[in-house]
């Protein structure tokens, strides 16, 4: 029998069970998009761009009393080991849809009636948790674009590998993963805005995984806030002539 990727004490990449991969977040990285951001969970990397609020095309999609949010999750063909077919798939359509629902609660859509806010998420490198990574990048890009928001939404996943409940499954663990549960969290309102799960667990384990994922979200929330603030503080010191 081959050696398991999760041993009694530590994980194969040296992380603790309740530790995420190193996180990198940066807002304001693209020129043409109104707002943009990059987010990394270890080697999983997504870039998001925001356009709008702008006029709605086609016009019949317009809502008289609020802005509509449109999300487009895409995977670059070179983001996976086996080249992934470019263009929308059923998977990407579904992820675009759940991403929108995850983010929508924080957007103050009533401030810009009859407009659309368009978010494009491009996954450049995929090593598990791409939808969480994409949501985090999208949220940072929205804040960077000056879209009115009540809070940041944060996303993180937890799961079960070889009977152990762990945070942010990745790399070799992924092939042995029994359960994966991506979650998004609206911290100010203490609400779950994304919740999906694949794999067999007892009800008790499901609750435990959920709580661990939320613990991860709270930590990433701090990192994301910091990355937004640092965008402007860095510019300041640079500007001191």
């Amino acid at each position: 029998m081959k050696e398991s990727k999760v041993k009694d004490e530590k994980r194969v990449d040296g992380r603790d069970f309740d530790e995420t991969r190193p996180i990198e977040a940066k807002a304001g990285i693209l020129h043409r998009a109104q707002g943009s951001a990059m987010f990394k969970f270890g080697s999983t990397m997504a870039i998001a761009g925001v356009f709008g609020p702008r006029k709605v095309f086609p016009k019949h999609k317009e809502k008289a009393e609020r802005a509509i949010l449109r999300t487009d999750y895409r995977m670059a063909p070179f983001s996976t080991k086996e080249r992934s077919r470019p263009g929308p798939s059923r998977r990407s359509t579904e992820i675009s849809f759940v991403t929108r629902n995850a983010i929508l609660p924080v957007i103050v859509t009533e401030d810009f009636p009859k407009t659309s806010i368009d978010v494009v998420v491009e996954v450049l490198q995929a090593d598990a948790s791409t939808r969480c990574c994409g949501i985090n990048a999208a949220v940072l890009a929205l804040a960077d674009a000056g879209v009115p928001m009540r809070d940041l939404v944060v996303s993180c996943s937890a799961g079960k590998v070889n009977g152990k409940i762990i945070l942010d499954i990745a790399g070799e663990e992924d092939t042995e993963g029994e359960v994966d549960m991506p979650v998004a969290w609206y911290p100010k309102r203490k609400e779950i805005t994304l919740l999906q799960m694949d794999g067999i667990v007892t009800p008790g384990e499901a609750k435990e995984i959920l709580h661990l994922a939320l613990k991860g979200c709270e930590r990433i929330y701090k990192d994301m806030q910091e990355s937004l603030r640092s965008k402007y503080t860095i510019e300041e010191s640079k500007g001191d002539v």
Binding site: V98, E191, L195, G199, V201, A206
Partner: peptide, 25 residues
């Protein structure tokens, strides 16, 4: 025993942790 095998949240608002636990039961 009865186990869970999948979950999917929908709708454009959130759920509290307690509500998710209630729904699992």
């Amino acid at each position: 025993e009865i186990k869970l095998c999948s979950m999917q949240k929908g709708g454009s608002n959130g759920l509290a942790v307690g509500q998710v636990e209630q729904i699992i039961d």
